[in-house]
Design a binder for these strands. Structure first.
Lengths: 204, 204
DNA sequence: CAGCAATTATTGAACGGTCGGTGAATAACT
DNA sequence: AGTTATTCACCGACCGTTCAATAATTGCTG
């Protein structure tokens, strides 16, 4: 039995959170107990409570981490694309892409959404996150509109619509996917957005 | 202390399921234990296990009940409306209505959706349910199309889209609602459907 | 740089509580 | 009398949590 090296909080805390995340994928919110997390990480259960004072705190910390990762994503930055048409398409493509939808395991994010129904703190964190995304899209839409790429009346409504459809994509993949790849339905979703903002896809 | 009357399985089982449902709303999937359900119904915990052999069976039973209620809803029958335009609008109005969205408590249905990520049985039940709805809508679309009310190419895709948007509505209400009534965003969703099927709303 | 104290990381043992579940006892109905 | 409804008394397992013991690391001091 090899003696375990000591690590400091800076290293341990993220390690535990990642362990929690993985146990969450396998066992779900109900099954992800402290001892299971400890077992998965091959450490003592008490160590988890040493760093995170309580189970609830652990949960909140993971949510915080996920949200901050979500926000710090560079995936929505397309300033490097000169052609505005192409830039707009790149944005839409990303929002309805498989890659984007899998920045977080869908089971885990679904679980936390569910938590938000009975935990006001979690609810407000997610509300804030989605509004952040909505506003980000909204700003982009206004700019594209100003440059004549698209035509919209109410940018907030459109941004709301896009975020909603983006989330719906996850739902569709899980419950209505016919074995078709993710992209099949994503195409339909994108078309509907293009129609809504009166964007003519320049077929090449 | 008044002595409790005996009831038979036919009465008790639904009673327990309803109790489970209510505890589920208050406590969530993790908190809805057998003893809490028993307490809520003012009966002995063992009685629940007498009727439903296990906790898992209880859960599956409630899901089965919810799905069957969902399917037996008369809410989607609009044959009595003669005018086909009005009938089409009535269908769309219903699908994006508050009433329809609240046939089941959103927290509860969200919880079961979450379960479906780790329980293949539950997953297939919900997949089947949503495909049933999708097909129902699909058939309606084909008929409206045949009668020249709408114009569509791929009815299944459109039906998929409508179901997805309908579910997205729930998401939107929970995470992006600005205090506006449910109907505000529902209107946007409906408009997008109308556009997609080339339906001109006859403004009166 | 040595040595020792303070701090931190990690383990260990034990807690009260609740969980789902069992099997037998009792009460009520048929 | 036999079946069914209901309660009762337990069970082992696991839950999150606490607090003390021990091992490693850090930091101060002379």
């Amino acid at each position: 039995m090899q003696r375990r090296k000591n690590q400091n909080a800076e290293l341990r805390k993220p390690e535990i959170l990642e362990g929690y995340y993985h146990v969450l994928i396998d066992e779900g919110l109900e099954g992800a107990s402290i001892s299971k997390i400890a077992n998965h990480l091959d450490i003592h259960p008490s160590l988890i409570l040493h760093y995170f004072k309580s189970k609830d705190n652990l949960k909140q910390s993971l949510i915080g981490l996920m949200v901050s990762k979500f926000k710090s994503r560079h995936l929505l930055k397309f300033d490097h694309i000169e052609d505005l048409d192409k830039r707009f398409e790149a944005l839409i493509d990303m929002l309805f892409s498989y890659e984007w939808s899998r920045t977080v395991d869908p089971g885990v994010h679904f679980g936390f959404y569910y938590q938000s129904f009975r935990d006001d703190n979690i609810a407000s964190i997610f509300r804030e996150m989605f509004r952040w995304l909505r506003d980000h899209i909204c700003e982009a839409l206004v700019e594209f509109h100003a440059n004549g790429i698209i035509q919209i009346k109410d940018p907030i409504k459109i941004a709301d619509y896009i975020v909603t459809l983006m989330e719906g994509l996850e739902f569709h993949a899980h419950f209505l996917g016919h074995g078709d790849p993710f992209e099949t339905f994503a195409e339909t979703a994108k078309q509907s957005v293009y129609t809504l903002v009166k964007y003519k896809l320049p077929r090449e």
